Each structure stands twice: as C-alpha cells, then as structure tokens.
Amino acid sequence: MKRMIGLILAAGVAVAAAGTADSREGCGPGFHRGPYNGCRPNRGPGFGGPVVVGNYYHGRGYWDGRRYWQHRDRWHGGWRYR
C-alpha cells in the first residue's frame, strides 16, 4: 500500500514538473502568445517603428499621442486635430 502511494506521488510530481516547464516557455522578446498558443509579433500603433507625435501615417492619419486623426489645422500657435 505504501509503495502504491509512493508511486502515485512520484507520478504526480513528474506531471506537475512537466506542466510547469511547458508553461514557462515564452515567445521571446518582441513576441506574445496569440490564439491557439501561437507566437505573434508585437505590433504597436506604427507597425514598424516608433510612432512620432504629429506625423502623418498613410491609411491612419495624424498621431497626436493618444489616437489617430484624419485632419489637422493650425490653431493658436499649435495644431488642432479633427
């Protein structure tokens, strides 16, 4: 009886150790887990480099630091986004 309990405990420890090792494996820098546990690249608002405030990005608009705007005008010595 004691031997059976020892075998069950040993098997439980082996399964727990294997599960922990699998869950620790990451995708590496610049990647994250996607659907179905696949690795996907991290893509920020600019999709290819740092996003600069005030620049126009084709297909998106002007970036003001929070969101994209389609139009901007000079207004009181600065920019107004609409």
Results as ranks from 00 to 15, higher is better:
residue 19 G to L: 15
residue 9 L to P: 00
residue 13 V to E: 00
residue 67 R to C: 05
residue 34 G to M: 06
residue 37 N to I: 05
residue 49 G to E: 12
residue 48 G to D: 03
residue 19 G to A: 14
residue 9 L to T: 06
residue 15 V to F: 02
residue 29 P to F: 08
residue 77 G to N: 07
residue 80 R to E: 10
residue 1 M to W: 03
residue 40 R to V: 13
residue 11 A to P: 00
residue 29 P to L: 07
residue 23 S to D: 11
residue 36 Y to L: 09
residue 75 W to S: 14
residue 48 G to I: 12
residue 35 P to L: 12
residue 26 G to Q: 08
residue 58 H to V: 05
residue 72 R to W: 02
residue 16 A to P: 01
residue 78 G to H: 07
residue 80 R to W: 11
residue 66 R to K: 07
residue 31 F to P: 03
residue 36 Y to N: 14
residue 70 Q to W: 11
residue 61 G to P: 01
residue 65 G to C: 01
residue 74 R to W: 09
residue 50 P to C: 14
residue 3 R to P: 02
residue 63 W to I: 03
residue 21 A to K: 08
residue 32 H to G: 03
residue 7 L to V: 06
residue 81 Y to T: 02
residue 74 R to T: 12
residue 79 W to Q: 01
residue 18 A to K: 10
residue 69 W to E: 09
residue 1 M to Q: 06
residue 51 V to L: 15
residue 34 G to A: 04
residue 68 Y to R: 04
residue 20 T to R: 13
residue 4 M to D: 11
residue 77 G to A: 03
residue 43 R to G: 00
residue 18 A to D: 08
residue 52 V to E: 14
residue 64 D to P: 02
residue 12 G to D: 01
residue 59 G to R: 09
residue 60 R to E: 12
residue 60 R to V: 01
residue 26 G to K: 05
residue 16 A to N: 04
residue 82 R to P: 00
residue 51 V to S: 03
residue 14 A to V: 05
residue 34 G to L: 05
residue 15 V to H: 00
residue 67 R to A: 14
residue 8 I to Y: 02
residue 1 M to V: 09
residue 75 W to A: 07
residue 68 Y to N: 05
residue 50 P to T: 01
residue 73 D to G: 02
residue 13 V to L: 15
residue 24 R to I: 11
residue 78 G to E: 09
residue 52 V to A: 04
residue 19 G to S: 13
residue 42 N to M: 09
residue 11 A to V: 07
residue 56 Y to R: 04
residue 70 Q to P: 01
residue 3 R to L: 12
residue 45 P to R: 11
residue 52 V to S: 03
residue 46 G to C: 14
residue 40 R to I: 08
residue 34 G to N: 11
residue 17 A to N: 03
residue 38 G to D: 13
residue 4 M to A: 15
residue 12 G to R: 01
residue 35 P to R: 13
residue 66 R to I: 04
residue 20 T to Y: 15
residue 6 G to C: 10
residue 69 W to V: 01
residue 77 G to I: 08
residue 43 R to C: 06
residue 34 G to T: 07
residue 22 D to F: 07
residue 1 M to P: 09
residue 54 G to N: 14
residue 19 G to P: 00
residue 20 T to N: 09
